[in-house]
Design a protein around this nucleic acid. Structure first.
Lengths: 224, 224
DNA sequence: GCTCGATTTGACCATTTGGTCAGGTTTTTC
DNA sequence: GAAAAACCTGACCAAATGGTCAAATCGAGC
């Protein structure tokens, strides 16, 4: 039955992300935004082209004029998203102060969850499906970046700037904790009554996270 | 268009989880297992009843003899899962040693990710959709449990057994970090080459997580 | 080995879904 | 301002999908 495979399809005006005209630019953007909303809720298979078209304010036929097929839209949305998802980690500066750098990183990721919760969820959805589309990106650029930044963390540990923790798992921890505020928003909201969209809550979350990550749970001598 | 609403449906042999005969018991179990696999990958809308039936080794008609509709299967799977998801937190003992208790909790959650990755993913999928089905459970029993255990953490903090961190965000952090090994398995595997299913990796993850959560990143006086 | 309810099936159906296409309308280009 | 290109639409289609139903088959108790 070929379950969740995502096929390939042709192109009409422009297959890559380079619109030629104003109308194309506007409509492609509208489509991508609508698609993000739908795909992030229902995943690839659960999303309906009709609904994306409706949300984008155009006919399905017209939608398909811009993106030849459902999977083409999906890939375009995902490609758009990946850059922004990865960007924050790139800014981690080896020469900076570990605490400042990591705090800034965590804050950026938290901000991403607040600003683009749907993007975060779409990313999660793609993962849940086994990452059929972005698998190569994970194994390539993402792994490379993680390896590079792991070195930075190890470097800091060697200099005694941070405790020698496992860099990879630290990165996973930061990813997971920051994304959970977007991906598991219903849970967060059911328990706290609010969410990462709220600035006060976001500050509180950042405070709690950094306090925990830097200070740990064990009592420290000198600070009761 | 009534996007992702999950309707209600009748019942055939038994609507609740109490099978009457051996055959019912066996078949219901087979269906639930197959449904877990499919729903966890594709979400509610993306899942196909045909496929669940095929995976369960029976005809679609027969599948629908046991569960009157797609949504009924979905709810049954989710109900099955929720108990197991919540169970570990219940075991957190106020009178125990904080470090031991929390380590045990983290280990249990990690083990859950290893043993029931599909359950973890289905839970995530339901969240991504806005938790339409389990919303009430989140706001009721889950919140109650979290409130209760937050008290335990505060209690520990007052006694100076742990640093006074925000209990809620600590719980979120533990949930997120442990679930990420199941939900984002492709990412984990792309970067580490293995995953939580591997016992050695699981030990390493547990070690790294507890070390980080208890010790924090900041260097401690006395332990270079 | 018969009976009655439980189980299973395949044919069938209405609706939905992704996608095509011929032709019409608008915008750009010269 | 006309030709060409870009844009848009509604009708249409084949396949897929959730679900129904009458009839066939099975199985435990008598």
């Amino acid at each position: 039955m070929e379950a969740g495979r995502i096929p390939d399809a042709g192109t009409e005006p422009e297959s890559d992300g380079a619109p030629r005209t104003r109308i194309q630019e506007k409509n492609r953007a509208r489509i991508l935004e609508a698609a993000l909303g739908t795909f992030s809720r229902f995943g690839y298979r659960g999303a309906r082209v009709d609904q994306i078209a409706e949300d984008a304010g155009m006919s399905k036929s017209n939608l398909l004029y811009y993106f030849g097929s459902k999977s083409e839209i999906y890939k375009a949305v995902l490609a758009d998203l990946l850059d922004r998802w990865l960007a924050p980690l790139r800014t981690l500066d080896p020469d900076g102060d570990p605490r400042k750098e990591l705090t800034a990183y965590i804050e950026q990721k938290l901000q991403f969850s607040a600003d683009y919760p749907q993007a975060s969820r779409l990313f999660a959805n793609e993962m849940l499906q086994g990452a059929p589309v972005i698998r190569d990106v994970l194994a390539g650029p993402l792994k490379a970046l993680v390896d590079e930044k792991s070195q930075v963390l190890r470097h800091w540990a060697e200099r005694g700037r941070i405790r020698p923790v496992d860099p990879t798992h630290l990165i996973f921890l930061i990813w997971a904790t920051t994304q959970t505020y977007a991906d598991f928003a219903p849970q967060i909201e059911a328990i706290t009554g609010t969410g990462v969209h709220d600035e006060a809550f976001r500050r509180q979350a950042l405070q709690a996270l950094t306090d925990l990550i830097f200070g740990g749970l064990l009592p420290r001598p000198g600070s009761p």
